[in-house]
């Protein structure tokens, strides 16, 4: 057992996630930038306020008329 990060598997994981999003070419251009993008995107929002809840808002009602549709 070791505490040393498994860089090979991290790189493979990064590559797999990039491929899943169709970003193979961008990964090939700069694998390190892709790894940084994953970290930044996944952690972008950060901690939410203590009193934040995403279930307190009523659901938004789709209004076909407002969006230009017809019924």
């Amino acid at each position: 057992m070791t505490d040393t990060p498994d860089t090979d598997s991290t790189a493979q994981w990064t590559r797999t996630l990039a491929q899943a999003r169709g970003l193979d070419r961008a990964y090939a251009l700069n694998p390190e930038a892709m790894a940084a993008a994953m970290a930044r995107g996944a952690a972008s929002l950060g901690p939410l306020p203590d009193d934040f809840s995403s279930v307190t808002e009523p659901a938004v009602m789709f209004d076909a008329e407002k969006f230009g549709g017809s019924t």
């Binding site: 970003l23 995107g41 996944a42």
Partner: peptide, 17 residues
Amino acid sequence: LPGAFVPAADYVKAQQL
């Protein structure tokens, strides 16, 4: 590129925030 990895739930929560 970071936008490819924003969880959908985080985008929704950001709009709620």
